[in-house]
Design a protein around this nucleic acid. Sequence first.
DNA 1: CGCCCTGTTGGGGA
DNA 2: ATCCCCAACAGGGC
Length: 284
Amino acid sequence: MPELPEIETIRRQLAPELEGRRVEQLDVLDARWCEPAEPSALEDAVRGRRIERVARRGKYLVLELEDDIHLAMHLRMTGNLLLSHDDERPHLRARFLIEGGKRLLFLDVRRFGTGVVLLGREARDAYFDVRLGPEPLDPDFTAEALRAQTRGRTAPVKAFLLNQERIAGVGNIYADEALFRAKIHPLRPVGALRRPQVAALRDAVVASLEAGIDAKGASIDDFRHSDGAEGSFQDEFLAYGREGEPCVRCGRPIRKIRAAGRGTYFCAYCQRAPRAGKALGSRR
DNA sequence: CGCCCTGTTGGGGA
DNA sequence: ATCCCCAACAGGGC
């Protein structure tokens, strides 16, 4: 379930545990994790260096190490980070030995997750700049900024939200959640949204993400929570994964379609279908 | 038991 | 820009 809120939750839990401590050693157990780089390249770059900050950019968790070395990790679909005293776990892909004895374990059943070392601030910024748009929780993510970004675009609004180059960190679940809250049909051309709808969408994106962060998430600490103890975020969502169940606003059944290649849940009544023949605000 | 489909992501090719 | 497939695996429906 790693979208922006889950990564941010992990970051907040990890920061006080890791910041200021050294990485005594890194073991990359699956070479695919860091392709096309060699595991030894990551292990050598990280070994012995102090973690100055645990940061997040979009869905990436970033260990900012001394000497301006950055390790950006992406959990993809099933990746997970666990703070543990154990050296072995099922689906272990990479293991950090942290000064003081704890281990930071990167677990990933499907092995889609990645780790990349970025040498220098410029390299780090360049890496993110070509992949990620603005952070939705930054103060400058305003309705006007979003409007400027959407104008003239014909992509379905859901595809726009999922595109990390447009907005960083919004995934399939929070995209549906935001559209439901803003009462916007997922297939509406994003450029056709009126000013008030753009404003509603901005607010809904921010509110959905913040709600996700506030929701009690799974702890990454071995001691407070053991393995499968994941909070059921599912219950927090208003439409996602609830095909056929009644819309919380109008009671009509939630529908499922495919949008931008992903399963998409919405209320066909609350979120009006795009009007044919009016793709981009006919006027103006 | 086997087969088929789906999936919290993102990159690549047509 | 857009659709489709792929990565590797688990779980559910039939």
